[in-house]
Design a protein around this nucleic acid. Structure first.
Lengths: 234, 234, 234, 234
DNA sequence: AATGAATGAGTCTTCATTCAT
DNA sequence: TATGAATGAAGACTCATTCAT
């Protein structure tokens, strides 16, 4: 079978898996179901991905790649705009990505947590060897840095063009933003359930969050005013 | 058997579960093992917790309760200090909690994500009914607000005593901090693995993160200078 | 505790068991539930009946005893009526018993089947020894004959008083009736479900069944005409 | 795998189950044992039958089908004989079937009882939904009528050819016979254990039973004399 | 490449029964 | 007698993975 067709099959399987993992969770989705949804036999699934875990790693890789693309496109499409405006677009695009591709976002987060464990000398051994030895794992260990790299570039650009405060340090600043974005994704769905006890409303909070983010960055030139969001963020 | 002893048993089981879930993960820990580690028969485990899921919910409840205590103690023990200093202690105590009680922290985060799903009308049905109908679940739905509540109180206090910027709005400000802390926990372990590609170092980053947090809050009075951390944060 | 109280407890347990076995079946009723329903501790249940099986045997014994009483009362209360009329009453009373005390009837039938196995030299060993060694089992082996005995007496009486055909042999005749009654109980509930395919209607069938039974017996004297039943038999 | 082989496997599993259920009872037979006896893995058993209950329903279906065949063959093979003689053969064949295929006979009886419960509006809910929703259950609800249908046909034929009393009504007459046969199967094994108390002997009883059955039916023409059985019926 | 039947170790869960108090 | 916590063997069922075709 041609390489083309091969890729098509892999894609089909992954799409099926992403859909089902998203609906029922990794653990509650059976390989049988993935295969059926991909209109493929179960055996063939194992020809392309040698285990369920590896399929999930493949999805994780896709997550990093897609997000990297989001970052790259944001950077490139905004090449005529200020770094501040790039960040503005980046935040928006990331939040859209996390919302629309929940599984990919979750896979990324899972991987980051796993790397945390992996970096911990004592805890490392709690990760099964099959995982660590997978090609995907190795690739992911490098891939994970591409995303912050681009983020840092954007901030640097903003500092150069004066749209971002000159006293900020690009690396830590991006990680700060990154931290906030990841935290936001973790928290925002749970806010506002029966809002009796706390006087915080989702819409208010979203705006405050974004406003803060941009006030933090805003330099003296070329930084457009932040536009409050009406209604739901997405 | 006395209520006391009964609670002791429950505690024993939960401690065993927390230890093992922490080492091998929820999914890879068998109820058999939990029972054995708690020096108890498997059947008794099911006498106290009617399923593995419910045991995990019980742990989640413990997580919220313990964290609430951390918040309360921080507030009360610092009653003679400024709100800013209270926040300072709170951040420190939370990070210590998250680090030392990984499973509890993770359980809390898992629950927050679940609430996100639960709040989503279409996705809600993807959560098994046994879970939603559990007493623990109901209790947790309320419990989750206690923590931000205390946080908001501290910020309010800081605003009143001038140690925190007066222009800040307590609710959104606390959630901002809360977001950053949760994001930090997600990310920090993964930073700095083979630092070749990015010029960010864990220690630098930790300090930058904390410094930023406190600069954000600092008012004009009673706010002590933030002290950089040497070496590992914990 | 007095013997009186002891019997009261046993009775309570058995009543609980009978109710629950009737509703959910022997197999789906837990000893826990029986104890709870009897407002007694589980342990005490085992003080009175040394196993679930034995509890069921006790119920079986009760079944034979109660049915024996039904037979005896029918015989004694009808001492001034003809044997034919006694049989008429007996049939009616038995059917009422079977309908109202489903569990007792079923227990009796189960025991008869078990005796069938027990009488079969090769199959006997498939019955657990605990069962066969139980006092209840021994008692039941004798008890089972009391019922046909009374039946035979009634038929003999009818033959003597001319209300039942003189050419009939009492033993075989009673067993014939007995067979029909047991078969009827097995079948009648299932008749008439969506009566499209077979032109048999429950009411018609009931009457035909009873009519036949009594035509079979009817002698020349003292036998009242059989009265057709309107509506449900019970 | 071919449909043929698939059926072969199903058959193998069912045969194993029938054998073991017959020896140790449904409840005391483990799926593990069924699988082992069928020289198959446990998982495969669940591939073909999605639960133990369903396997038993499949056996029940087989019971009705086999018995239907017995009825059909009896009818067809005796097409040149009188209806009375057909009934004679039918009774004999049914008794042989019940004796040789105890499990199938029991499964049929169990189903009839269940239908009784199912037809009872209040009791219906005591039957688990999985059962009622099974395809087997639906099929069985229809299948159960095929057997009496054939029986009725035979009686009708006998009435037409004068070998069975003309005044009998075919439907009720067949159900009468059917009742007696089912009752007989329930009772006959238990008769004659320690024959001290009752003067009934198995052989005597068997003959009396059969004799009665045929006297009941016998018309004026073409009905051969009933031949007493010597020794055991089977 | 492709199929889907086959495997079987793995797991949760149940519940009759026991026993310390 | 009475309790109900404690036991643990048993058992149904799952599902990732393999393999003959």
């Amino acid at each position: 079978m041609s390489a083309y067709s091969r890729q098509q099959k892999e894609k089909k399987i992954m799409e099926a898996a992403i859909k089902l993992f998203g609906e029922k969770g990794l653990h509650h989705t059976k390989m049988d179901e993935v295969a059926k949804f991909a209109r493929i036999s179960k055996g063939l699934t194992y020809f392309y991905f040698k285990s369920k875990e590896e399929l999930y790693l493949a999805i994780t890789k896709k997550a990093f790649e897609e997000l990297k693309e989001v970052f790259q496109h944001t950077f490139q499409n905004g090449r005529d705009e200020s770094g501040f405006d790039n960040m503005n677009a980046l935040v928006k695009n990331f939040l859209a990505f996390a919302e629309e591709k929940k599984v990919l976002h979750q896979a990324m987060v899972d991987f980051l947590r796993m790397v945390g464990t992996y970096n911990h000398p004592e805890r490392r051994k709690s990760i099964p060897e099959e995982l660590t030895k997978s090609t995907y794992f190795r690739k992911l260990l490098n891939l994970q840095y591409d995303i912050p790299s681009i983020g840092v570039s954007i901030i640097s650009k903003g500092i150069r063009d004066g749209s971002i405060r000159p006293e900020l340090q690009p690396e830590t600043t991006f990680y700060l933003i990154w931290t906030m974005l990841l935290g936001y994704e973790q928290l925002h769905g749970s806010i506002n359930y029966e809002p009796k006890s706390l006087k915080i409303h989702e819409e208010v909070w979203n705006n405050a969050f974004l406003k803060f983010l941009f006030e933090l960055l805003k330099g003296t030139q070329n930084a457009h005013k932040f536009q409050p969001v009406q209604g739901k963020l997405f």
